[in-house]
Amino acid sequence: DYYKILGIPSGANEDEIKKAYRKMALKYHPDKNKEPNAEEKFKEIAEAYDVLSDPKKRGLYD
């Protein structure tokens, strides 16, 4: 669930989505986080943001 990945409610607005994305992206960026699964988690976060930040894609997802 993209909302769960970003840690936001399904009714989140654009600003909340952007803030959550930035926070999670910094936390899991492969250059900052050396955990083995950090890169995979970072890709999931980027995919979630891509879908939820685009009103058309978000509409299809919801």
Rank of each mutant, 00 (worst) to 15 (best):
15 D>A: 05
46 A>G: 04
38 A>L: 11
12 A>D: 03
52 L>S: 01
4 K>L: 08
3 Y>C: 06
34 K>V: 11
35 E>F: 06
50 D>E: 04
44 E>P: 11
42 F>K: 10
50 D>S: 08
14 E>F: 07
1 D>A: 07
55 P>G: 09
17 I>E: 00
2 Y>K: 05
62 D>C: 13
28 Y>T: 02
37 N>C: 09
14 E>M: 10
45 I>T: 06
51 V>W: 02
4 K>V: 07
51 V>F: 04
49 Y>H: 03
43 K>A: 15
9 P>L: 07
53 S>Q: 03
52 L>K: 01
23 K>A: 14
17 I>D: 00
2 Y>N: 04
59 G>L: 06
59 G>N: 12
18 K>G: 13
38 A>M: 10
29 H>A: 05
53 S>K: 04
32 K>P: 05
62 D>R: 03
5 I>N: 09
13 N>R: 08
32 K>S: 04
38 A>E: 09
17 I>G: 01
56 K>W: 03
11 G>W: 08
46 A>C: 11
40 E>L: 15
2 Y>P: 13
16 E>D: 08
37 N>E: 08
39 E>K: 13
24 M>Q: 08
22 R>G: 15
32 K>G: 06
28 Y>N: 04
33 N>G: 15
25 A>M: 10
5 I>F: 04
1 D>I: 02
42 F>L: 11
10 S>N: 08
21 Y>Q: 03
57 K>S: 07
41 K>S: 10
5 I>D: 03
18 K>L: 14
22 R>T: 13
31 D>K: 14
7 G>D: 09
49 Y>A: 07
42 F>P: 04
41 K>A: 09
38 A>I: 10
46 A>L: 00
48 A>P: 02
7 G>F: 01
22 R>W: 13
21 Y>R: 04
57 K>R: 06
17 I>C: 01
13 N>G: 08
21 Y>N: 03
45 I>L: 09
12 A>E: 02
34 K>E: 15
38 A>V: 11
26 L>E: 08
35 E>T: 13
10 S>V: 07
16 E>Q: 11
33 N>L: 11
38 A>S: 10
49 Y>K: 03
3 Y>W: 03
7 G>N: 07
54 D>V: 15
21 Y>E: 02
20 A>I: 01
56 K>N: 06
39 E>G: 12
39 E>N: 15
20 A>R: 03
55 P>E: 08
27 K>R: 10
23 K>S: 14
8 I>H: 00
2 Y>W: 13
29 H>D: 02
30 P>V: 13
62 D>H: 05
31 D>P: 11
62 D>P: 15
53 S>G: 08
19 K>T: 13
51 V>I: 11
56 K>I: 08
3 Y>K: 00
7 G>E: 07
62 D>Q: 07
31 D>C: 12
53 S>E: 04
31 D>N: 13
60 L>V: 11
16 E>H: 04
49 Y>R: 08
3 Y>P: 03
16 E>K: 09
13 N>K: 03
16 E>V: 09
47 E>Q: 05
28 Y>W: 12
8 I>D: 00
51 V>K: 15
40 E>M: 14
37 N>Q: 12
16 E>S: 08
50 D>R: 10
4 K>E: 02
49 Y>V: 05
7 G>S: 07
7 G>A: 06
55 P>Y: 03
57 K>W: 02
33 N>C: 11
48 A>G: 02
19 K>M: 14
41 K>H: 00
51 V>C: 12
28 Y>A: 11
38 A>T: 07
3 Y>Q: 03
49 Y>P: 01
29 H>V: 06
41 K>G: 12
53 S>Y: 02
17 I>N: 00
2 Y>H: 09
43 K>P: 03
21 Y>V: 02
20 A>W: 00
47 E>D: 00
22 R>H: 14
7 G>I: 00
53 S>C: 14
61 Y>Q: 10
15 D>E: 08
39 E>M: 11
33 N>R: 13
31 D>Y: 12
39 E>R: 13
60 L>Y: 04
5 I>E: 09
48 A>L: 00
24 M>W: 12
33 N>M: 13
32 K>I: 02
62 D>A: 05
30 P>L: 10
49 Y>Q: 03
35 E>C: 08
6 L>S: 02
38 A>R: 11
45 I>E: 02
54 D>L: 01
8 I>F: 00
36 P>R: 07
25 A>Q: 15
25 A>D: 06
11 G>H: 08
4 K>R: 07
29 H>R: 12
57 K>F: 03
47 E>H: 04
33 N>P: 13
50 D>Y: 02
16 E>A: 08
34 K>P: 12
27 K>V: 10
52 L>N: 01
5 I>A: 14
18 K>F: 06
11 G>A: 07
18 K>V: 13
4 K>P: 00
35 E>I: 08
42 F>R: 10
27 K>P: 02
47 E>W: 06
38 A>D: 14
17 I>S: 01
61 Y>M: 14
49 Y>S: 04
6 L>A: 01
35 E>N: 15
30 P>K: 12
15 D>G: 05
61 Y>L: 08
59 G>W: 03
39 E>T: 09
5 I>K: 07
9 P>Q: 09
8 I>E: 00
32 K>C: 02
43 K>V: 13
10 S>G: 08
20 A>L: 00
36 P>H: 10
44 E>I: 12
61 Y>W: 09
36 P>F: 03
31 D>M: 10
13 N>Y: 03
53 S>F: 01
23 K>L: 13
52 L>T: 02
13 N>H: 09
9 P>K: 04
12 A>T: 07
27 K>F: 13
40 E>R: 14
12 A>C: 07
60 L>W: 07
4 K>S: 05
48 A>V: 02
55 P>V: 07
55 P>H: 05
24 M>S: 09
7 G>W: 00
14 E>P: 04
27 K>I: 14
7 G>V: 01
32 K>T: 03
26 L>N: 01
55 P>N: 15
11 G>R: 05
50 D>P: 01
9 P>V: 07
5 I>L: 08
4 K>Y: 09
56 K>P: 02
22 R>Y: 10
43 K>W: 11
9 P>C: 06
6 L>T: 02
13 N>P: 08
38 A>F: 04
19 K>D: 15
30 P>E: 08
45 I>F: 04
30 P>H: 15
27 K>G: 10
17 I>K: 01
6 L>I: 03
24 M>H: 03
34 K>H: 04
48 A>I: 01
4 K>C: 10
42 F>S: 10
18 K>I: 05
20 A>F: 00
52 L>F: 01
53 S>T: 11
24 M>A: 11
44 E>H: 15
27 K>H: 15
49 Y>G: 06
32 K>E: 04
23 K>H: 14
12 A>S: 07
1 D>N: 11
18 K>P: 02
40 E>Q: 15
35 E>A: 05
3 Y>R: 00
18 K>E: 14
1 D>T: 05
44 E>G: 13
5 I>C: 10
33 N>K: 14
4 K>H: 05
18 K>T: 14
13 N>I: 03
15 D>M: 04
46 A>W: 08
35 E>Q: 13
23 K>I: 15
50 D>G: 06
1 D>C: 12
42 F>W: 15
45 I>N: 02
17 I>R: 01
45 I>V: 07
50 D>Q: 04
25 A>F: 12
3 Y>M: 00
19 K>V: 14
36 P>A: 11
11 G>T: 05
28 Y>F: 12
36 P>T: 11
34 K>M: 12
7 G>R: 06
48 A>R: 00
21 Y>F: 03
41 K>M: 09
32 K>D: 03
24 M>V: 11
39 E>F: 09
59 G>I: 02
39 E>S: 11
48 A>T: 01
11 G>I: 06
9 P>I: 07
53 S>V: 07
33 N>Y: 12
56 K>Q: 08
57 K>P: 03
17 I>A: 02
9 P>N: 07
45 I>P: 00
45 I>R: 01
14 E>L: 10
2 Y>V: 00
4 K>Q: 10
10 S>D: 13
10 S>K: 06
26 L>F: 15
33 N>H: 11
61 Y>C: 14
4 K>G: 11
15 D>Q: 06
37 N>D: 06
4 K>D: 01
25 A>I: 15
40 E>K: 14
30 P>C: 10
9 P>S: 07
42 F>A: 11
17 I>V: 11
60 L>H: 13
50 D>N: 12
32 K>F: 02
17 I>F: 00
44 E>Q: 12
30 P>M: 09
40 E>A: 14
5 I>H: 01
55 P>M: 06
